[in-house]
Design a protein around this nucleic acid. Structure first.
Length: 932
RNA sequence: AGGACUAUAGCUCAGUUGGUUAGAGCGCUACCUUGACAUGGUAGAGGUCCCCAGUUCAAAUCUGGGUAGUCCUACCA
């Protein structure tokens, strides 16, 4: 074995072995356990959020697989309608071609080509993370089989009256020429203006002043509204206004939606271009006057002068024209929320179009019940509130998109505009008796991507066929996802699955936090603070990292800023930490759903942890194998691997086995409560601070000295290799590669069998293996050793220097412990001698430490300075005195003694007694020093 | 405007039903190349648990009120 752990040397090989041997497939035996991957965008690449999420899922999957469950991790990718279409359009654009030049069929061919070419990126990256999904059933939401499910759902919902077509205001992206959902619109506060226009009354008796942030929409005004109680305007209600620039006569109406306090108290109403105005238009039966075309240019419903103008050019001109007519009252600065498309960044327009909708309320009612009734549980729980608040106020879902890439809507129209829904044109003709000579045309639109991903949990398993897979793995166990797509995806999966399967899609939703950079900033390309998980695994030099972060950056000063900040934060680039260290970092930060700040310092610590495991294993192998000069095995030592029982266990052996049980329990509790931070912490602590720091150190005196018998040596070898082997299995779900690599070499020495650690049994805590006596004895041993080390450390005694040690004021138990552990003490505390003092025995002048009641004494002669020791003792005394004061205060308070439970009072009394006894001894010691 | 979450060591975070000497990792200081590991070892320093009030014998923990930050949801033309 190499002296340091080299992740790159092993990861790829093990992954290929696992995949080629089909270890990721469900075993077909045991209780089913299933996770559906949230399908990543097929054209995307792995970011830190994916890395976090996939690592969690893989830990759960590997954990349950090792527990003997019939485990399926269903994998696949999403066709991501808008995102993918945009990518391909951009590519074509570079060659000066638009998708319309190509035509729909050719364009879709291009998209498929692009998918074939780049669609494998993210799945390759998933493999680098060590993810163990069943690749043999990988699905894509545009697969033929999946399309069948999508079509079936659409048709059934239509037939059940839950899908309808209607002309409504939608969020229109003028760049993409499609409707987008509320959730795809981001509103940010921006600086703008509030223009105040004078609208003259038709009868010439004056004017009203209306304020607007979007002057161009005035071309479509169909009323002016005031509050019915507004004394200023009450008398004008029912009169009309002659709309400037347009000349249309529009009514002044009363509606209590109007806020009298805001602006002038008069509102222009444009029902075709504003959601609130649309509703008011419905109430007052106002005409809908659409003045835009698909590009958000002024259309022919407006005066000729403005026709064909871009909306923002028209805005400018309209303001100028108002000014010219002396109808511009004033312009105020105004902050407003501007809705922008999350993909394109252009301002979204409320726009009147024909769209398909899902009537959501009936579905939502059931979906709410499923969570209220506990059939679905969110972890952490507070996300249920978020879910409820959205579901209780849900709007009908617009599912049509004016795109080419996606599931085409299975609806056909005849020349009279009648609509027929069916599985194919043939079926539609047959079912509706439409003659062959009647022309039918399929709807051009495709379905919202979330419509298909909403079927993910059952569509991937063969639905609408009632397959074995479906029966076995539905409902799935847990969905692991970010809170940002609870509405987009989780809620929709719940609604659709309940409707079509009459069961929940999953019983638990584990919501994890967002991965941020080390300063808590959201990682984004434009901020230039993204970390690529693969770079953390493989490492990257500074120049490449800078190039990567600034690549595609158009704005020069941003480029410079990012370059500067990158060079400052990572002056040496990123080291190659390996997959296991990356994964462990994720786990250590995965507490209760809060956002995680990813600090590279953490991953370095876990790389070191991997190295620790590696080297501990080297040590174990050195002792359990017969090795040649290169460290290769030439033979095995007798570690009891043949089942023989001629061995003897030391107190350390019994102790580490006890500690192992506790670690197994803690890891299981952590994983099962989705507290991967606690699980990883428990494991780290056991491996580093128990097994390496103490157990392996305690093994050295046994293995290297003639004072121990062959049976004792064998007991130690047996324990050390078996505990290591078990620990590897315990750690495997979290760190798959290093555990497999080492396990392969130790398994036979530990008497274990199997081709891979992946399918070996998960270690389960066995309380009967916990040896309380061994636990307290080793604590005693540690206490003595730490006492000596403390004196050494503070008194600057070289660790190389052997010293004599005396024990005073000890109990029978102390004496027993000393007798049984002298050899350990001598080695671990580098003692020259250990001498038990009976009552009355003269002790040399010494530095002192306390282990319970017992004093341990390091003679000062030639080693320790009186002043230094006095200072050290005083420091200790001060510390204790502070606590004594506090505890005495408590005990002197009669209310405490009366009201607190007896055991709490007793505990305080014991504490005080211990401290006072310690104080007495330390002060006595100081006294002795002072006499000199 | 409404709601949620967060505030603990220099940094990143744990801290169960109120009773701990408030912990871990990283960083810091000193010493140590001892034969698994310097990606290491030993020892140490470092905390007004955001502030104020309350409940209680007892509050990092419970309640109320602030402050700061993050994020949702709804937004007024």
């Amino acid at each position: 074995m190499d002296k340091t752990y080299q992740p790159a040397a092993i990861e790829k090989n093990w992954y290929e072995t696992w995949e080629n041997n089909g270890y990721f497939k469900p075993s077909g035996e045991g209780e089913p356990y299933c996770i559906m991957i949230p399908p990543p965008n097929v054209t995307g690449s792995l970011h830190m959020g994916h890395g976090f999420q996939e690592s969690i899922m893989d830990a759960l999957i590997r954990y349950h697989r090792m527990k003997g469950h019939n485990t399926l991790w269903q994998v696949g990718t999403d066709h991501a309608g808008i995102a993918t279409q945009m990518v391909v359009e951009r590519q074509l654009d570079a060659d000066g071609i638009s998708r319309h030049d190509l035509g729909r069929d050719k364009f879709i061919e291009k998209v498929w080509e692009w998918k074939e070419e780049s669609g494998g990126t993210i799945t390759r990256q998933l493999r680098r993370l060590g993810a163990s999904p069943d690749w043999s059933t990988e699905r894509f939401t545009m697969d033929d089989g999946f399309y069948k499910a999508v079509q079936e759902v659409f048709i059934r919902l239509y037939e059940d009256g839950l899908i309808y077509r209607g002309k409504r205001l939608v969020n229109w992206d003028p760049k993409l020429h499609t409707a987008v959902s509320d959730l795809e619109v981001l509103s940010e506060e921006e600086d703008g203006f509030l223009w105040h226009f004078r609208y003259p009354l038709t009868d010439g008796s004056g004017h009203l002043v209306v304020a607007t942030t979007r002057p161009e929409t005035m071309l479509g005004d169909s009323a002016v509204a005031v509050h019915p109680e507004d004394e200023r305007y009450k008398h004008l209600i029912g009169k009309t206004i002659t709309l400037p620039l347009v000349g249309r006569e529009i009514p002044i109406i009363a509606d209590d939606y109007v806020d009298m306090e805001f602006g002038t108290g008069c509102v222009k109403i444009t029902p075709a271009h504003d959601f609130n105005d649309y509703e008011m238009g419905q109430r007052h039966d106002l005409p809908l006057i659409n003045v835009f075309n698909d590009d958000a240019q002024i259309n022919k419903n407006a005066p000729e002068k403005y026709q064909g103008m871009d909306r923002f050019d028209a805005r400018k001109l309209i303001v100028e024209d108002f000014e010219a007519l002396d109808l511009l009252e004033k312009i105020d600065d105004h902050k407003l929320k501007v809705p922008r498309g999350d993909r394109t960044g252009v301002v979204i327009e409320p726009y009147l179009t024909d769209q398909w909708y899902v009537k959501t309320q009936p579905l939502a009612d059931e979906a709410i019940k499923a969570v209220e009734g506990g059939d679905i549980e969110f972890v952490p729980k507070q996300y249920e509130n978020m879910y409820f608040s959205w579901m209780r106020d849900i709007q009908d879902w617009c599912i049509s998109r004016q795109l080419w890439w996606g599931h085409r809507i299975p609806a056909w129209y005849d020349e009279d505009g009648n609509v027929y829904v069916g599985r194919s044109e043939e079926e539609v003709r047959e079912n509706n008796n439409i003659a062959a000579d009647v022309a039918l045309k399929q709807d051009d639109d495709v379905l919202d991507t979330w419509f298909s991903s909403g079927l993910w949990t059952f569509g991937t398993l063969g639905w609408p066929e009632e397959t074995e897979l479906l029966k076995t793995f539905n409902p799935t166990n847990v969905l692991v996802t970010g809170f940002d797509i609870i509405f987009f995806w989780v809620a929709r999966m719940i609604m659709l699955t309940l409707y079509f399967r009459k069961q929940v899609p999953f019983s638990t939703v584990y919501v994890h936090g967002l991965v941020r950079d080390s300063h808590g900033q959201k990682m984004s390309k434009s901020k230039g603070n993204v970390l690529d998980p693969i770079d953390l695994i493989d490492g990257i030099d500074l120049e490449s990292l800078v190039a990567k972060r600034t690549g595609g950056m158009m704005v020069p000063h941003l480029r410079q800023k990012i370059e500067k900040q990158t060079r400052k934060e990572f002056p040496d680039g990123l080291a190659a930490y390996g997959t296991d260290a990356l994964r462990y970092t994720y786990y250590s930060l995965a507490s209760t759903g809060r956002d995680i700040k990813f600090d590279v310092g953490r991953i370095e610590g876990f790389r070191n942890f991997c190295n620790k495991i590696w080297n501990a294993s080297r040590y174990v192998l050195m002792n359990c194998e017969v090795q040649d000069d290169e460290g290769n095995r030439v033979d095995a030592q007798d570690c009891g691997q043949n089942g023989s029982d001629d061995y003897e266990l030391s107190v350390a052996d019994r102790w580490i086995v006890s500690k192992l049980q506790q670690a197994e329990k803690a890891v299981a509790e952590g994983v099962e409560s989705y507290r991967f931070d606690l699980a990883s912490q428990a494991l780290y602590d056991f491996i580093w601070n128990e097994y390496c720091s103490w157990y392996l150190e305690l093994s050295k005196p046994i293995l290297n000295s003639d004072d121990f018998s062959a049976a004792q040596k064998k007991g130690t070898r047996r324990t050390m290799v078996r505990v290591l082997e078990t620990t590897l299995r315990l750690a495997h779900p979290l760190m798959p590669f290093i555990t497999e690599e080492i396990w392969q070499r130790v398994k036979d020495l530990a008497g274990a069998e199997g081709d891979t650690i992946m399918t070996a049994a998960l270690p389960i805590c066995d309380d009967s293996k916990i040896d309380e006596q061994a636990m307290t004895d080793v604590e005693w041993l540690k206490g003595v050793i730490e006492g000596v080390r403390n004196i050494r450390g503070e008194m600057n005694i070289s660790p190389a220097k052997s010293i004599p040690l005396f024990f005073a004021n000890g109990s029978d138990n102390d004496q027993r412990c000393l007798n049984e552990n002298t050899l350990f003490l001598q080695k671990l505390a580098s003692l020259e001698s250990a001498t038990w003092l009976n009552a009355g025995d003269e002790a040399p002048l010494s530095a002192t430490a306390l282990v319970g009641e017992m004093e341990i004494l390091v003679p000062m002669a030639g080693l320790i300075d009186v002043e230094a020791e006095t200072a050290r003792l005083n420091k200790e005394i001060d510390k204790i005195k502070k606590d004594v004061g506090r505890v005495e205060g408590k005990l002197n308070n009669p209310k405490f003694v009366d009201k607190a439970p007896a055991e709490v009072v007793q505990k305080e009394k014991d504490k005080l007694a211990d401290m006072q006894s310690a104080l007495g001894k330390l002060e006595e010691q100081i006294g002795k020093l002072a006499e000199l």
